[in-house]
Computed example of a mutant assay.
Amino acid sequence: MSDLLKVSSSPHVRAKDDTSRIMLYVILALMPTTVFGIFNFGYRALLLVLVCIFTCVISEWLFEKAIGKKSTIGDLSAAVTGLLLALNLPFTLPVWQAVLGSIFAIVVVKMLFGGLGQNFMNPALGGRAFLVISFAATMTHFEYDGVAGATPLALLKSGEAVNTLDMLIGRTGGTIGETSAICILIGAIILILLGVIDLIIPGVYIVSFAIFVCVFGGHGFDTSYLVAHLCGGGLMLGAFFMATDYVTSPITPAGKVIFGICLGVLTGIFRIFGNSAEGVSFAIIFSNLLVPLIEKVTVPRAFGVVRERKPKEVKADE
């Protein structure tokens, strides 16, 4: 019999990219903002990056060793979690707090729920949220050129003027990886060109947030105010590198659009009406929790399947 008639089980078409290759692409795309963050904030930034990556990798290895599970640190997902967590931290954060955040991200958010592919929220953002709640003072302490001060978003929220060019380039205070919008966009272009992400979620996220700011920000269509919001804080980093996480984002086309709108609206609510000047991390976490519901509503109906019609009731006198 001809080999053409033999049918194997699915999948019939396989992509050459596996998890480790995709994670390697993400690390590559994060290099511009990582290198700039180290250049911007010095050796302390490098120290936190190395500590977070090492702690995440060793935490995953030790957890799997303890439960007798095969090690998965070779897929590089733990290293990506450590790098993303470090980029979301101020360079002044005590090292021991960074270690705690890394352990929480891997053990609690990722491994206790089954490991890669089973976590219900982005592990790096889960670790950051844990640190913000536990150590608010150190997580909101920012310095630039040796001077402690408010971030551009905090200044913007208080009604003060900010330099949007400095925010675009990265000559401002903030977390290690959020200051330079240009470096983040370079990394985003790398991810798009390599086919790791598409523009639906980040595009809808940014557009819906911009509309929210224009409508409710109190400044109308003020381009300087809008650009400052887009370049400030973790919006760009979150939109391209964390909201697009395969595990915690929808896979249906309509679901991606709804997910992006939720992200934009929640970020706008937290920034405009909340007490904090930021809101990206919690907006992504809350939207992650909505993903099962979003996918349930937006899942396409299988071809040829129709809704079951209720039988017509027959009246007694008929």
Rank of each mutant, 00 (worst) to 15 (best):
L30D: 05
L28K: 00
F120K: 14
L193R: 13
F212D: 03
T267W: 03
L50G: 14
I58C: 09
L199T: 13
L46H: 03
S134Q: 03
M121R: 06
A105N: 07
D198H: 11
V207R: 00
Y205I: 03
G260T: 08
H229K: 10
G260Y: 04
M1N: 13
L226H: 01
K16S: 15
A124N: 07
P292S: 08
F303L: 12
V291A: 07
P250F: 01
Y144D: 00
D145Q: 14
G187F: 04
A98N: 06
M111F: 01
S20I: 00
V314H: 09
V213C: 08
F36K: 07
V305E: 12
E308H: 11
F54T: 15
I211E: 03
T92I: 11
C262G: 15
L4K: 12
V35Q: 01
V306L: 13
V297C: 10
T55I: 14
H229A: 07
L24F: 13
V7Q: 12
L47N: 10
V35K: 01
W61Y: 15
L24A: 14
G74N: 12
A283S: 15
P253N: 10
M167W: 01
G101Q: 07
M23I: 10
R14T: 13
I201K: 06
V213Y: 05
A243K: 05
A86P: 04
V213H: 02
R309P: 00
F216T: 09
I73L: 06
V291L: 03
V299N: 11
I192R: 04
F41L: 04
V297N: 03
L131F: 07
E143S: 15
T151Y: 00
S20N: 10
G159D: 06
F212Q: 03
L266F: 14
A137V: 13
F209G: 08
L237A: 10
T179V: 15
F273Q: 02
G37I: 06
R21D: 07
L165S: 12
F54Q: 01
H12G: 13
I182G: 03
A210S: 15
G203T: 07
G218M: 04
T151C: 03
K69Y: 06
V265A: 13
H12D: 11
L76M: 14
S287L: 06
L191I: 03
W61N: 11
L226M: 12
A105V: 05
M242R: 10
A45Y: 01
E160M: 11
F221V: 15
A161I: 08
G159F: 01
E64D: 12
A45N: 07
